[in-house]
Nucleic acid binder design. Structure first.
Lengths: 264, 264
DNA sequence: GCCCGCCCGTTTACGGCGTAAACAGAACTC
DNA sequence: GAGTTCTGTTTACGCCGTAAACGGGCGGGC
């Protein structure tokens, strides 16, 4: 039930050796060792993964670490800053991912492929954290949500420019890539949230309370099975490949991808 | 400074006749009339647009309406439900948009174009609300974040199927379209947040406090002006057109867009 | 006219939140 | 051993969402 199956999603936590934990992380509640920022951030991520973002309060996180809430403030200036740290830490998992390289060794397509799957792995490993990644205001307009780190932006741009992209094309590719990743992954984790909620909420009302009249939406009803199908992995791959093809065209034609030659 | 300029973004609030307000909306604080759910939701949207999502509390919203917080509970069961209502109300602006049609009169491309721009207009009119649209868990796996309404899902699917798409292709198109919209618009409003914050925060520290060492990121520095450029409108149009072309291909070749014939 | 319920907003109250400030003890320095 | 620093606790404050009790105006039956 949890060993890697043949058609398992290669980016899902079960598809690999369990969620690639950022930190060595002693047993959850066991943390008797000294407090520090890393340990707090690690515990916060663990907590959000387990209980959901909205359950995270300073008091509860303290309790999870066997400590009073105020103790956390010795290492974290505020709850907001803690959330920023959580986002940063989660994104930093990219550096520990052996399948993602800061420098492209096998061409830019390979680089972008690996990077995309690396980010997807993070999103799937921390579905409750990811909306935070997407939502927190970036530090600067050019450090865009899904990547969030200057080092990755630098790496991205260098990779493409070294591969022959013009500066404009590289920047434009960076934008297209960002929005592709963000859109796909956010949709994917939110869909996952629904599926999970649907089955782990056997409390209170069993199901279908207000139950809108589905008769008004016959097509939705008819296609429900198709619509509910989870083809995230294949769709991600397909959309990613399409994006790469598009970028390849841009590169080969040496033009920056701006609108309008067909007509008008 | 605020009249429609020639190159103004056609979807931005200034580019049209001001933000298309959902509700007739009597003057903001003036609301002496009777309370009801619509008025409360309208006031909440107004409040979020003005003060930001995090500033919205029941007490403050009550005050904004000249009423105690508890009065709101007569019409709204909880704050969470109020936020759901806000999302729904904002999305419902689509129905009032004369440029967006529930039924395609000029082909599916025109339909998708209008719909996309309609959603973009909403996102730009309510940048503080939009992350909520993107983030709130959908009611069902198939009612996906940016569209969020069964009626639009139905309309979307019918439009494409009537235009010759297979059921599978229509569903697949719906997914691709959703993630495109979500990614692009979320990125766009979050970028806007940065730009705004940067200039309306002349309080406390003037700028650059911790100021990471930019020397490590020479490419980012060199391309800063390119990276900061706001080409959202053009990029949106380009990505949308690309998506439509891709769908056209799917339609013409009559295949559902699944992976794998090139090799492997 | 009068009274009785209902509608609708207020008051009061509770537990939990983020966090400032004072505090206590252990650990390290000399 | 005394002083200092480092670390976590205690206490306290104001704000939050919201349950529950309350009260005043208003309409219809007598």
């Amino acid at each position: 039930m949890s060993e890697p199956r043949e058609d398992a999603d290669p980016d899902s936590p079960e598809g690999r050796g369990g969620a690639a934990a950022v930190l060595p992380a002693a047993a959850p509640g066991s943390g008797r060792g000294a407090l520090d920022r890393r340990r707090i951030l690690g515990a916060a991520i663990e907590f959000i993964d387990a209980e959901g973002l909205s359950a995270l309060t300073m008091r509860r996180l303290g309790a999870h670490l066997g400590v009073e809430a105020m103790a956390l403030y010795r290492y974290v200036p505020s709850r907001e800053n803690l959330l920023d740290g959580v986002v940063e830490t989660v994104i930093d998992e990219l550096y520990g991912d052996p399948d993602v390289h800061l420098e492209p060794g096998h061409g830019w397509q390979d680089y972008l492929q690996r990077l995309a799957h690396g980010v997807r792995r993070i999103a799937l490993a921390h579905p409750e954290v990811f909306p935070l990644v997407a939502t927190r205001p970036p530090a600067a307009p050019w450090v865009r949500p899904p990547l969030r780190s200057l080092r990755w932006v630098e790496s991205f741009l260098v990779a493409l420019i070294d591969s022959g992209f013009s500066q404009e094309a590289a920047v434009s590719a960076y934008r297209a890539y960002s929005s592709f990743l963000l859109g796909h992954l956010l949709l994917e984790v939110s869909q996952k949230g629904v599926a999970v909620n649907a089955e782990d909420k056997p409390e209170g009302v069993p199901a279908a309370e207000e139950a809108v009249d589905l008769n008004q939406y016959p097509t939705v009803v008819r296609l429900e099975s198709l619509l509910s199908l989870d083809e995230s992995a294949a769709e991600f791959e397909e959309a990613l490949e399409n994006l790469l093809e598009r970028l390849e065209l841009v590169l080969r034609e040496g033009r920056t991808p701006r609108r309008g030659d067909t007509r008008d």
